[in-house]
Design a binder for these strands. Structure first.
Length: 128
DNA sequence: TGATTGACCATGA
DNA sequence: ATCATGGCCAATC
């Protein structure tokens, strides 16, 4: 089993030394790297960015990122595995549809085997 | 300009 | 186990 996939050089998306990248930009970068068929939660992203408690920001970021391409917000759920942001999609069912389309089973707005599909940036992404 | 909210999480009682 | 509170950063009222 071992690793799911090779580490992704985070530096590629998060150029160090550049503080121009706001919290949001970092969130976008991470979310954009979520592999298909995988999901993560707000806390993991926030934690990866340094402030583990600013998970709320991630939500806000996604709200802003909603209009951006390459930002699969449907792959981001809360720590409970629930599709908390489904209401913010084009249609409330869009999120679930997208997830199921990627092979993720969603029942009652909750990701089944969320733990198995969980994608932790702080683990998958290798900080150089 | 300050106060409140927001797709949340962790801790304490 | 559930309920209540604190905290984070940014945008909106």
């Amino acid at each position: 089993m071992a690793k799911l996939q090779k580490s992704i050089p985070i530096k590629k998306v998060l150029p160090s030394g550049k503080k121009d990248q706001s919290f949001f930009e970092q969130v976008y970068a991470i979310v954009a790297l979520i592999p298909e068929g995988r999901v993560t939660n707000y806390g993991a992203i926030a934690k990866f960015l340094g402030t583990k408690m600013s998970a709320r920001m991630v939500g806000w970021a996604l709200n802003n990122a909603h209009h951006l391409p390459n930002v699969p917000a449907h792959r981001v759920v809360n720590r409970n595995g629930a599709l908390s942001g489904k209401a913010h999609f084009e249609t409330p069912t869009q999120m679930q549809i997208l997830l199921e389309r990627e092979g993720i089973t969603v029942i009652d707005d909750c990701v089944v085997n969320f733990k198995c599909h969980f994608w932790d940036p702080s683990i998958e992404l290798d900080i150089v």
